[in-house]
Design a protein around this nucleic acid. Sequence first.
DNA 1: GCCGGCACTGTTACAGTGTATCAGCCGCCC
DNA 2: GGGCGGCTGATACACTGTAACAGTGCCGGC
Lengths: 167, 167
Amino acid sequence: MHDHAAEPSGAPCGHADHESVLDRAERLCRERDLQFTRLRRDVLGAVAGQAKPMGAYDIAERLSGSGKRVAAVSVYRALDFLTEHGLVHRIASRNAFVSCGHDHGERDGLLFLICRSCGGIDEMTSPAIESQLHHAVAEAGFTPTSRIIEVEGECGACRERGGPPGH
Amino acid sequence: MHDHAAEPSGAPCGHADHESVLDRAERLCRERDLQFTRLRRDVLGAVAGQAKPMGAYDIAERLSGSGKRVAAVSVYRALDFLTEHGLVHRIASRNAFVSCGHDHGERDGLLFLICRSCGGIDEMTSPAIESQLHHAVAEAGFTPTSRIIEVEGECGACRERGGPPGH
DNA sequence: GCCGGCACTGTTACAGTGTATCAGCCGCCC
DNA sequence: GGGCGGCTGATACACTGTAACAGTGCCGGC
């Protein structure tokens, strides 16, 4: 689910690894004069360490491992911060979160591919879809401010490993 | 939020009124040999009576008006049935449901426009977006089975009524 | 130094969303 | 009649998310 060789009409996007995500976040926060606190780093680290989307309570549970316990509400606040600055993305159809593999800051123009077999998530962008979408919406007299596109199905790796044959 | 004159590149879609939705549902269930029970009709009626998306508990509360009380779990079961057959749609970004204004049965290929000002929802289809999406996803090696596209913003009516000026 | 403001975090409580499970009902077929 | 399957009612519970308040640490003004 990580490194597609294929290049869609938009930019492809493999998941960045755990380290680079944290480094990138740290740099971005310095640039924007934001506080990249311990909790926020831990939450981002937890999310980045998983290819699958994580629920807020999963994150809280994982961070509560060693003695000190982290309440879900704290996780939510950290997630609010991280999503606001485009470091993680919310997957609406799953009520869960994934770390952003891009180097951008914008949180729009993204498209999520969710595999039903392995639960993995890939993100990609497609300017072609964006422009079509913007065009169609504008003709309906609508002024968009944000949008979500989430596709469920089977990723290439799972299909090769052999999905349900008679299906 | 109901009757756009504009025609996007796809098919436009005004909301059908309360009556026709129920009639259509009844016919569809007869055709497919499905049971359009009292509860299911009531739930669909409640959803169809609102331009805004309704939460399951809102529906339960509304149906519980006159003496007899309807539990949320029953509403969920009715909603499962209705969504499964394309009579209502789930709005993932709101955890809520709207009645389908189409005459189709498929629940894919749809696109939802959600107005932040009035809370109204419009649905439309766009073959152009569909084909772009299918193409992009296929090139990523992904086999889609379902997809959601939800756009938030301001609908034409609200913008004309005067949105926030300095914004 | 002290004080006040500010952002962040901890904690508790609670509202909202969704599912599991068991039991009763009703129509249908044998 | 008896069994079977689909629908509903009811209770309990898990998961998701927010409100409200208190404590802490940092930083700037006095």
